[in-house]
Simulated assay, not measured.
Amino acid sequence: MDAHKPKAPIKGRGAASYVHGRYSVTTTHGVDDGWGSVYEDQGPESLRPRTVVTEETAKSIISRNDSPDVGFAQSVNPFRGCEHGCVYCFARPSHAYLDLSPGLDFETKLFAKTNAAERLRVELSRPSYRCTPIALGINTDAYQPIERRYRITRQCLEVLAETRHPLSFITKSALIERDIDLLAAMARDRLVNVYFSVTTLENRLAAKMEPRASAPHAKLRAMKALHQAGVPVGVMAAPMIPMINDCELEHILEAAYEHGARAAGYVLLRLPHELKQVWREWLELHYPDRAAHVMSLIQQMRGGKDYDSTFGKRMRGEGPFAQLIQQRFAKAHARLGFGRLPPLDTSRFIPPRALSAQGELF
């Protein structure tokens, strides 16, 4: 028996095991000695790992990138790890840098940057800073469940609103409705837009793929609420996965447009680094009858491999199946009347005053 191979999904979690990170110095493997599997008969705590949040002090908060196929140059991530537990999350391998598992650790061992707003204020006040839109919460969702308690995203949003700094969101959470007061005010000055990531409209599939993200109907409700408040809203049908959710592409776009989305995009499933193993385990546990077929189609879109990270290909793939998805998207996009969200205005930015140990005299 392969003792360290998961035998069943874990309720409320996307990953099914502690996949080893690529930088791990030591690794452990459970061995079944005949007295019970390492994944069975160990009690409820071993079967349903709890979420642990570590508070940390960030040295810097604004990350920068020059990737040609990413639509932003700056981002702020209030958290590391994400409790949403999306099994397909491209950010899972980043937990390997912490010598933690991109599998279960990514969604159960979280880090909250409690000084994020303070650091953001400091970095925005530097004389060398040049204003370009900030994407708030990209590597992990800024509105994941622990934001209800920590309110770090809200604090960062307050700094950006105060300084009239443009920003964008992409989220899977209806929690963003909590901040509609700030978002609506910023939208009037063309300082914010919001994209909702919608993977499926089926509750059962969502519960398997993204167990602690907002349910599909809740995302659509939040989308409509923001639209009615004047916040520009878009939808990302992502990721599209052959024989799992690609059949929903048009339905997702239609539902999003009905709820106020006026721009749309899509991304194919990406499987960098350890995510390949996390995904294969999930596929075997939930869809064993079609797992081989799904992986065959994925590889057809990735030049015969599980993943191709080449710019220009990593988001869209290649080959007949990828071209078919692209054609379907383009047709639905035109039929529904999607366009572009208004450009964000960088001219209104007012740098914050640098914090002084002597305080304010006037």
Score class of each variant (00 low, 15 high):
Asp2Cys: 07
Pro6Gln: 02
Ile10Ser: 12
Gly14Trp: 11
Ala15Met: 06
Tyr18Ile: 04
Val19Gln: 09
Tyr23Asn: 12
Ser24Thr: 07
Thr28Lys: 14
Val38His: 05
Gly43Ser: 09
Pro44Ile: 10
Arg48Cys: 06
Pro49Asp: 10
Pro49Thr: 09
Glu55Phe: 03
Glu55Ser: 13
Ile62Trp: 03
Arg64Tyr: 14
Ser67Gly: 01
Asp69Arg: 04
Val70Tyr: 02
Gln74Val: 00
Pro78Met: 03
Cys82Pro: 04
Cys82Trp: 07
His84Arg: 10
Val87Ser: 03
Arg92Pro: 04
Pro93Ile: 02
Ser94Asn: 07
Tyr97Pro: 00
Leu98Thr: 01
Asp99Val: 00
Asp99Leu: 15
Pro102Trp: 05
Leu110Gly: 05
Ala112Thr: 02
Ala112Ile: 02
Val122Thr: 11
Leu124His: 06
Arg126Val: 01
Arg130Leu: 09
Pro133Ile: 01
Pro133Tyr: 03
Pro133Phe: 02
Ala135Glu: 03
Ile138Pro: 00
Asp141Lys: 10
Tyr143Gln: 07
Tyr143Asn: 06
Pro145Lys: 11
Arg149Ala: 15
Arg151Pro: 02
Ile152Trp: 03
Ala161Asn: 05
Thr163Phe: 10
Thr163Ala: 14
Phe169His: 14
Lys172Ala: 11
Lys172Glu: 11
Asp179Val: 07
Ala185Gln: 15
Ala185Thr: 11
Arg190Met: 03
Val194Gln: 05
Asn203Trp: 00
Leu205Cys: 00
Arg212Trp: 07
Arg212Tyr: 09
Ala215Tyr: 08
Pro216Met: 04
Lys219Ser: 07
Lys219Asp: 02
Arg221Ser: 08
Ala222Cys: 08
His227Phe: 13
His227Val: 00
His227Met: 00
Val235Ile: 12
Val235Met: 07
Val235Ala: 10
Ala237Cys: 14
Ala238Asp: 13
Pro242Cys: 08
Gly260Asn: 07
Ala261Ile: 01
Tyr266Arg: 13
Leu268Pro: 01
His273Ala: 15
Glu274Gln: 12
Leu275His: 04
Leu275Arg: 08
Gln277Lys: 11
Val278Pro: 05
Val278Leu: 03
Trp279His: 11
Trp282His: 15
Leu283Ser: 13
Leu285Trp: 06
Ser296Trp: 06
Asp308Gln: 11
Arg314Leu: 06
Gly317Arg: 08
Phe321Pro: 01
Gln326Lys: 13
Gln327His: 10
Arg328Ile: 07
Leu344Cys: 05
Leu344Gly: 06
Thr346Ala: 14
Phe349His: 11
Pro351Cys: 13
Pro352Leu: 10
